[in-house]
């Protein structure tokens, strides 16, 4: 555990909390892609299948449970409790276009051809592209509420910090995981355009509005 990895985990946790608080306090999930949230729930479910078989640390297990619980709580709020506020007309990304390629790639490129390993790899590939429905939704409506952009910034920072962590681990312990690193780079690159808009607009007090 290094400071970048901890920072990444905390940014991820912050993103999840921002999203839950936004939905809970405004009693609305307007502007949030339920499709992306489905993909995140699927990601954590596939990745943390080892929760009961592979104990790493109390920190590790607690965070896994928190991420899983938050992912499903978000789905509950969006699809059950505040269903009426869900903006499904703008959330039209086809999930199979991301799930099927991620599953196919996980079957071909993995560390070991076993169920738990292929599921872990699938989760890594799926997470890399899970934000696309959300970014697609923002580009479709042309804008995002500030709170939604804070959520996206925290979520994007998480994998960016993980990349720094992987560079650090490579030099300090000779550790590297090509699958996680390449997928993590793809994941972070997807946020670059958003990062640019966030820094040039939202941090200056303006609403995140895409250029017409």
């Amino acid at each position: 555990m290094n400071i970048f990895r901890l920072g990444g985990d905390l940014a991820h946790l912050l993103a999840i909390i921002i999203l839950l608080l936004k939905i809970w306090t405004t009693r609305s999930c307007a502007g949030i892609s339920g499709k992306s949230q489905i993909l995140f729930a699927l990601t954590f479910t596939a990745r943390y299948l080892d929760l009961f078989t592979n104990f790493v640390s109390v920190y590790n297990s607690v965070m896994k449970v928190v991420y899983l619980a938050a992912a499903y709580a978000t789905l509950y709020l969006m699809y059950v409790k505040f269903k009426a506020t869900y903006d499904h007309n703008h959330d039209t990304f086809r999930l199979e276009f991301l799930i099927l390629p991620a599953a196919g790639l996980a079957l071909i490129i993995n560390h070991e051809f076993s169920i738990i390993e292929v599921m872990w790899t699938f989760s890594i590939y799926l997470e890399a592209v899970a934000i696309l429905p959300q970014l697609f939704m923002v580009s479709k409506t042309g804008e995002a509420e500030s709170i939604t952009s804070h959520y996206l910034f925290a979520l994007g920072s998480y994998r960016a910090l993980y990349i720094v962590n992987w560079v650090y681990r490579y030099y300090s312990e000779g550790f590297y995981d090509m699958i996680a690193t390449l997928a993590g780079v793809v994941q972070t690159v997807l946020y670059c355009d958003f990062f640019y808009l966030y820094i040039t607009k939202v941090l200056k007090g303006k609403k995140l509005q895409l250029p017409a």
Binding site: F175, D177, A180
Partner: peptide, 10 residues
């Protein structure tokens, strides 16, 4: 060393 080690990450 390269594979599996990342399982300590989240």
């Amino acid at each position: 060393r390269a594979s599996h080690a990342s399982k300590d990450e989240l």
